[in-house]
Amino acid sequence: MTIWEMLAVLAAGIGAGAINAVVGSGTLITFPVLLATGLSPVTATVSNALGQVSGAISGAIGYRAELTGQRRRVIRLSIVAAIGGISGAVLLLTLPPTAFETIVPILVAIALVLVILQPRIAKAVQRRRTRKGTPVHPDGGPLLIVGLLLASVYGGYFTAAQGIIYVALMGMLINDSLQRLNAVKNVLAAVVNSVAALFFIFVAEPDWTAVLLIAVGSAIGGQLGARYGRRLPPTALRALIVAVGTVAIVQLLLRRYG
């Protein structure tokens, strides 16, 4: 890499770390930059996954206040995320690159619709539970487990918009504030990135310069994103998620069909 390419990757890492802490989809910042430096799609994906581990952990630490009282939930969902993450990492090295490219924009679009409708859906689910006398599961129940498992498989494979899908699923099935769920999302993303990274270290060939630059940048960005993202009211956070997700869909479609 030239010095300018290295600066571009570092800047992309900072931006990705910040946006991941608040919303998700930071990969859509780093991935195109890595490709522009001449890395192959698989090498770029592997290097990005390794580099963003520090940013995911940084964002989770930044949201530690919102994690208070959620230990049981975080442990339970993290186990599911780890299983899905390692499965997705294996798929990345065994399936053709086009395998998920068609379905990913559809998944993100569905997630955005769910984020928009989440308050109404959550109220409807609560009314139904009250009417039938069904207790509220603090961790979302089996439906959330299955949804997060599938989302984590995708996260281990590519990671773009993974956080948006997490927030959409938890927002519908867990009765808690959006900021507290966003904090859990950061932990789950850190788990998925970490297990995928450990797998890639042994079986793939990352570009270690890119990994180091993204790691430093995303760690800085994670703290910045957490610092300011925690101050956003639910409506503003939801609007930001939708805005970033829309950009993600456009970029994914351009990458697939452009």
Rank of each mutant, 00 (worst) to 15 (best):
T2E: 07
I3S: 13
W4A: 13
W4T: 07
E5N: 10
M6F: 11
V9Y: 06
V9F: 03
L10K: 02
A12W: 02
G13D: 01
G17S: 06
G17C: 08
I19P: 00
A21T: 08
V22H: 00
S25Q: 00
G26C: 06
F31H: 07
P32M: 04
P32V: 12
L35P: 05
P41Y: 03
V42C: 01
V42S: 12
T43C: 01
A44S: 10
S47N: 09
A49H: 12
L50M: 15
L50P: 01
S54V: 12
G55F: 04
I57W: 15
I57G: 04
G59L: 12
A60S: 15
Y63I: 01
A65E: 11
R71H: 03
R72M: 09
R73Y: 03
V74K: 06
V74P: 06
R76W: 12
R76Q: 12
L77M: 13
S78V: 07
S78L: 10
I79A: 08
A81M: 10
I83Y: 01
G84L: 12
G85D: 07
G85M: 06
S87V: 14
V90N: 10
L91G: 01
L93M: 14
L95S: 10
P96Y: 00
E101Y: 00
T102P: 00
I103G: 08
L107W: 04
V115N: 13
I116Q: 07
I116R: 07
I116W: 09
Q118M: 10
Q118S: 15
R120A: 14
A122W: 01
A122T: 08
Q126E: 15
Q126G: 07
R127E: 11
R128K: 11
R128I: 02
R129A: 04
T130M: 14
R131F: 11
K132S: 12
D139W: 09
P142Q: 09
L143T: 13
L144K: 11
V146R: 05
G147A: 09
L149V: 03
F158H: 05
A160L: 12
A160E: 13
A161C: 14
I164M: 14
Y166M: 05
Y166P: 02
A168N: 10
L169C: 11
M170K: 13
G171H: 06
G171S: 08
N175M: 13
N175L: 10
Q179G: 04
L181V: 10
K185C: 02
N186D: 03
V187L: 07
V187Y: 06
A189G: 09
A190N: 00
V191G: 09
N193H: 10
V195W: 12
V195R: 05
A197T: 06
L198F: 15
F199C: 05
W208S: 02
T209E: 06
T209F: 05
L213P: 03
I214D: 12
I214V: 15
I214L: 15
I214E: 12
S218H: 04
A219C: 06
G221R: 05
Q223W: 09
G225S: 09
A226K: 06
L232R: 07
P233W: 05
T235Y: 03
A236Y: 01
R238L: 05
R238I: 08
R238S: 15
L240N: 04
V244A: 02
V247S: 14
Q251P: 00
L252Y: 07
L253D: 01
R255M: 08
R256I: 01
